[in-house]
């Protein structure tokens, strides 16, 4: 971060750029909101068999991530799944 960035609040053009980058990742992946919803439900169903998860705090989206190789950023499925109760696994 440079000296001037420190004092400057995020400009609307930067907001636009960041929003666009995110929306284009899922556009390019050809993932419609319906498909994302299905993926989400399937993941919930699988994980819920083993542990209790917090459905409220659950967040699944497609984002960009730096790849470990040298081909820059690649799309990735990002899932944040808070666990409610790990000690008492479901029987």
């Amino acid at each position: 971060m440079s000296f001037t960035d420190f004092f400057r609040k995020k400009t609307s053009s930067n907001v636009a750029k960041d929003r666009l980058k995110l929306v284009l990742v899922s556009d390019r992946a050809g993932c419609s909101p319906e498909i994302m919803e299905q993926i989400k439900n399937d993941i919930i169903a699988v994980i819920s068999r083993y542990i209790e998860i917090d459905l409220e705090g659950l967040d699944i989206k497609i984002t960009q991530t730096e790849s470990e190789g040298n081909n820059g950023s690649v799309p990735a499925l990002f899932a944040n799944i808070p666990i409610k109760d790990l000690k008492n696994p479901k029987k």
Partner: peptide, 11 residues
């Protein structure tokens, strides 16, 4: 663009 209220052509 200068004000930061429009994406630049580079963006």
């Amino acid at each position: 663009v200068k004000r930061g209220d429009m994406m630049s052509s580079e963006d």
